[in-house]
Design a protein around this nucleic acid. Structure first.
Lengths: 111, 111
DNA sequence: AATTTACGCAACCTTTTAGTTGCTTTTAAA
DNA sequence: TTTAAAAGCAACTAAAAGGTTGCGTAAATT
């Protein structure tokens, strides 16, 4: 579960994949591979590859129906990204609170 | 500023770079390139390259002092990641709230 | 039954990434 | 003033990323 975080980071690092994910999140129904690739100027195969990254990260789930493969978004893995970023939230406030947090941290390390 | 988001995503997509960033955030003083690369088994040059990515994303800032280059972390660009993820937060709750949010969104689109 | 659609698979290409090593330059220490 | 340390630069390599095209196959359509 937690060793997957690299895959999640990698999946969302690409702008095309973020766009695919966004389309799927906003879609009212699951979308087939072709329906998704209609949104892009690149080939269907290229889109398929991107979807595989998203699937590998758990951000997209696929259900086969006949000759079609319907994709839907699963945002849950993004929690891990959220958690990662949340830790640094303390450090993007103003300089003073950065100092305070910094000193706090040093104190924590010694205890 | 906002077109930089790709660089930020790419910078944090790599585990080594996340580690470098983390070391710098926790460090009480700015660290030289050598001091940073001491934490890793790879060569100094490899670490330098990673730092360049971080610098390009604004996550690391460097001050030259004599023959040394002192690096410190700047977490502010992570705000953009935070904002990106925050949008999807509504979708990783339970299924019911996902449905509610979904319907809400459809309503929003029509108005 | 013939054709179209939706898709996977595989081969291929180009660029980027992640790493290496060797060499030079600048700065600091002996 | 010789030597050692800190770092940049450049060339090189291997692997991964991002894309293409051609082809095969299964499922719908006509």
């Amino acid at each position: 579960m937690s060793r997957n975080i690299n895959k999640i980071f990698k999946a969302i690092a690409d702008p095309t994949r973020r766009e695919i994910f966004h389309i799927l999140v906003l879609a009212s129904t699951a979308l087939s591979i072709s329906q998704i690739s209609d949104h892009f100027s690149m080939s269907r195969q290229a889109v398929t590859k991107h979807i595989k990254y998203l699937e590998g990260a758990g951000l997209v789930e696929i259900k086969d129906v006949g000759r079609e493969r319907f994709c839907h978004a699963n945002a849950i893995p993004l929690k891990e990204i959220n958690d990662w970023v949340a830790f640094y939230e303390k450090f993007w406030d103003d300089k003073l609170s950065r100092l305070v947090n910094h000193l706090q941290q040093k104190a924590d390390q010694k205890s």
